[in-house]
Nucleic acid binder design. Structure first.
Length: 203
DNA sequence: TGCCAGGCCCTCTTTAGGGCCTT
């Protein structure tokens, strides 16, 4: 399997269209089920962090004030990712901030996104919750670092991605769960899931 | 002044509504 970049943002809120900005980004590069490199940085977008966000993430205004400029950080992050497909938990959220921060920096965002939340809903409908931490516990995966910090969440999402690929290989006999299959799975209605995986298992 | 996301999924549905998930 080729290089995959698992990404997580910490932000000032949930809506880049409403003025929210990223405060931290982390990217974990995965190849062949193994973490081969990491990128993490706080980023200063010049906006205040609401108190409840600081309570959630531990990221303070003082921490961000001393961080590099957001445009500089997102440019470095983009170069780090290159052409690798991006993976995130609830990717619609991280994709919006990825596109918004790159747009602020005058850069393009051509990478496709794969969503571990959508994949988990397809593959593990019996899981009690599909929050990232709950899925990590459900699969008995390692919790790395402080939850709601970008690198820790990116590492946990990378672990979840590895579990998904393992289950596709072992349970569904998909020899090579590549990006194209993952993209197809996350778009796939649950009723058609078995047919799709059987087709790839036979291939 | 009041409001403030967006994509996906499920159900009491499909010309809709509400919950989940991300910060």
């Amino acid at each position: 399997m080729n290089l995959t970049a698992v990404i997580d943002f910490e932000t000032t809120g949930i809506s880049p269209g409403g003025g929210d900005r990223a405060t931290e980004v982390a990217i974990v590069l995965v190849e062949g089920g193994r973490v081969v490199d990491r990128f993490q940085s706080l980023m200063n977008a010049g906006v205040r962090i609401p108190g409840f966000i600081t309570q959630l993430t531990g990221i303070t205004n003082a921490m961000v004030a001393g961080a590099p400029d957001a445009a500089q950080v997102i440019g470095e992050a983009s170069r780090f990712v290159g052409a690798a497909p991006l993976v995130a938990h609830n990717a619609s959220f991280d994709r919006r901030f990825w596109q918004a921060e790159l747009s602020h920096a005058g850069l393009a965002a051509p990478q496709p996104f794969i969503c571990t939340l959508l994949l988990s809903r397809r593959l593990y409908p019996q899981a009690p919750s599909h929050k990232l931490g709950a899925l990590v516990d459900y699969h008995g995966l390692a919790r790395t670092g402080q939850a709601h910090r970008a690198l820790a969440d990116a590492e946990m999402a990378a672990g979840l991605l590895g579990q998904i690929q393992h289950d596709l290989r072992v349970r569904h006999r998909v020899a090579r769960p590549d990006h194209a299959l993952l993209m197809a799975l996350q778009r796939c209605a649950r009723a058609a899931l078995g047919t799709l995986m059987a087709r790839h298992a036979d291939a």
